[in-house]
Amino acid sequence: MPAITASKYLVQAAWDDVPHLDEKTKAELLSSYPPHMRKARSQGIPSMGAGAIYPVDLDDIEVAPFAIPRFWKRAYALDVGWKCTAAIWGAEDPADGTIYLYAEHYRGHQLPVIHAQAIKARGIWIKGAIDPAARGRSQRDGEQLIADYKGQGLDLVNAVNAVESGLYEVWALLETGRLKVFSTLVNLKAEYKLYRRDEHGKIVKEFDHAMDAMRYLIATWSKIASVQVPDRTVGGGSVIADSDAGY
């Protein structure tokens, strides 16, 4: 179960968890609701109605994991905080420009050195973007926290943090099928289902660390996405493109 806080977890209850409902009753109940409310009523998934920030069904963007080709551009974005630090990695298919979110780091109550180790393990060469405020209690705190992460060897730039334009950029990619999510990103998917605005149109700022990281990644993509540079050469300057295979 994805953790919301150290003491709270996200639990979804579906009609299949209610033994007294038979299939006929479920069908009758389902037909009584409009299409946009059916998953909310039958599966416990929040309605993708006016309150949802990204009104695109998760089923339409989720894909099975696959090996990312070496020649695809990659990048990640980082949303940091004591309660939860989230990082989301993406890779771009050069054939059609589709970005695949393929990995996540999601952990709370740890020092920057611990998070940095996990991030570097996924590819120290991959460039990242970080929230400019870095969840600091003040701007000075935020700047120091960014310095702490850079001091751990992470190649970071300040993320583009224009909220509404960033949300629109992500939504446009989702709507046109150019942003996909690996099915293994359980925390990102859990947040996606609950990411919404309140009755006044304001973003509900809770359980949204992966959503913020996703927005930073897309908004800053053109500045940080890169292909891995071959890491070894031989005599005469010829390049070994794959250090594992040797050629």
Rank of each mutant, 00 (worst) to 15 (best):
I124D: 15
T176H: 11
G108L: 10
Q139H: 11
H109Q: 15
H115V: 08
P132V: 00
L188T: 13
Y149M: 05
K180P: 02
G123C: 08
A133H: 07
G136W: 00
V163P: 00
H109P: 02
G201H: 00
L111S: 10
I114P: 04
A134R: 01
Y168I: 08
A133M: 12
R197A: 02
A210L: 08
Q110C: 13
N187S: 14
E199S: 08
A159G: 09
V181Q: 03
G201Q: 00
G153N: 11
I126N: 03
E175K: 12
G201W: 00
E175H: 12
L173Q: 14
P112I: 04
K202I: 04
S138F: 01
T176Q: 12
R178M: 09
D155I: 03
I130W: 02
Q117G: 15
G142V: 07
H209Y: 06
I126Q: 09
R135F: 14
E206N: 06
L154F: 06
I126Y: 03
H209M: 03
R122C: 08
L145H: 00
H115K: 09
L167R: 10
I119H: 11
D155T: 03
K205D: 04
Y168A: 13
G177R: 09
W171A: 09
D148I: 00
A134F: 07
V181P: 01
E175R: 14
L167G: 01
D155L: 10
P112S: 09
L179F: 08
D131I: 00
H200E: 04
L154S: 02
N161Q: 13
A210S: 15
R140Q: 13
A134H: 04
V181C: 08
A129P: 06
H209D: 12
L111T: 10
F207I: 04
Y192A: 05
L188H: 14
R178W: 11
D198Q: 02
Y192G: 04
E191K: 11
F182L: 11
G142A: 06
K180S: 09
L179K: 11
R137P: 05
R178L: 12
L154Y: 03
L173C: 10
V170F: 11
I114Y: 15
L194F: 14
V160W: 02
K205L: 06
A118E: 14
L111R: 15
K205T: 01
K127R: 15
Q152K: 08
Q139P: 01
G142M: 07
E169W: 13
P112Y: 07
I114F: 14
E199T: 01
F182P: 03
H115L: 07
Y192E: 07
Y168D: 09
G166V: 06
R122E: 09
G142D: 09
G108E: 13
D148H: 05
K180F: 10
S183R: 14
I114M: 10
G151N: 08
N161I: 04
L179R: 08
Q139C: 02
D208A: 01
